[in-house]
Design a binder for these strands. Sequence first.
DNA 1: CATCCGTGGGC
DNA 2: TGCCCAAGGAT
Length: 291
Amino acid sequence: MTIDAYVLTDWFAEKARDLPWRRPDCSAWGVLVSEIMLQQTPVARVEPSWHEWLARWPVPSALAAATPADVLRMWGKLGYPRRALRLRDAATVIAEQHDDVVPSDVDTLLALPGIGAYTARAVAAFAYRKRCPVVDTNVRRVIARAVHGAGDAGPASNTRDMADAEKLLPADDEQAARMSAALMELGAIVCTARNPRCADCPVYDSCAWQLAGKPAYAGPAKPVQKFAGTDRQVRGLLLDVLRDTSTPVPKTRLDVVWSDAGQRDRCLDSLLVDGLVEQTTDGLFALPGEH
DNA sequence: CATCCGTGGGC
DNA sequence: TGCCCAAGGAT
């Protein structure tokens, strides 16, 4: 089974959300910033931050000139703050080696920190309107259902998933870019993981999953990530303290956030290693680069 | 390939 | 209410 590109892109033109990074006047830098922020963070929480970032840092060189501390504060609670540092690192490379222009070539994009298989192709497709497969969790689910008739996508296989997506793209670059966006949008607002809105689906009639009677997902169980009590939670609590202070703090200020001293110290060490925290010469702790 | 890396909202 | 999920990437 396949997915009709005309039907899906027509649906996209009529029903897609009006997101700022999709507007024709949005820069490639704006697209890149959005893609990084959207890695594991929902659209609703990204949108306000995206506007603030683009207003403050409208070009890569502007972000490259900011301190990591400023960048981490602007990142706020979007989560996975290493993304913010890598985006700043990527901006530095773009400013210094690419004349402050976000690359359009997938392999060049892949060489930038924090940019992987998905983001590189998303920038090429959405910012530069290229025909290249864009595979995220939404596209994988849509293809699993509409094409393969499965209830959900199994474990990711980059090569296979990209080949599947590529087959769905029209030959024309612009039409292919629209198709890539439409596949993602369908997965995001109609063909959702839980409670898919099949009544609103533009390709319902040809959906292999629907035609098969919507069988339940039969593949291996997906690993569930715990959060409460993990290092991830503790690191978040430690960073929370440092984001909210303008001056370096003694370790005692960090010790109060978690009772397990061993875990607390391990997390602080890992934050130092990751470059998310810095220790001053007098032994105080702060976000990097603000003293 | 599995695991780790934050955070919050919906059901 | 606990659990699942959200435009992934690096190791």
